[in-house]
């Protein structure tokens, strides 16, 4: 099982975009709901955990070259968010877990892989 599969299983993720979007490598993770904070402090290859579902998250993720976005709390993206993510080739997921739970699980996983 590769890292994406483990993360998808552990964080109870539903992939909403084309599976081709999973080609990007995960190099870490970042959690934040302030777009300026993510823009300034997330690193390329990070998987972004957030409560936001509007299309501007895709713009920010693309600018920083993130590996994907996880929308938490069972929220699903707005239609144009999903369309933009497909166009940008960016993996978009949702999970029933909240930010804290999702972060805890991915932190443990990435630690096992010596990424965090």
């Amino acid at each position: 099982m590769n890292l994406w599969s483990k993360i998808i299983q552990s964080l109870q993720l539903t992939l909403l975009t084309d599976p081709q979007t999973l080609q990007r490598d995960i190099r870490g993770a970042y959690c934040g709901d302030l777009l300026s904070d993510v823009l300034a402090h997330a690193s390329p290859g990070d998987l972004w955990i957030t409560i936001h579902r509007h299309r501007n998250i895709v713009a920010v993720a693309s600018l920083v070259n993130l590996s994907g976005i996880v929308i938490t709390g069972g929220r699903t993206p707005e239609t144009d968010t999903l369309e933009t993510a497909e166009k940008e080739g960016l993996a978009l997921f949702f999970t029933p877990l909240n930010n804290f739970q999702a972060c805890g699980r991915i932190y443990a996983l990435l630690s096992d892989y010596s990424i965090m």
Partner: peptide
């Protein structure tokens, strides 16, 4: 509520 307007824009530009 959209995650903008946190007062980080100009400080980010400055940095």
């Amino acid at each position: 509520e959209m995650g903008f307007g946190a007062g980080m824009g100009l400080p980010n530009i400055n940095r």
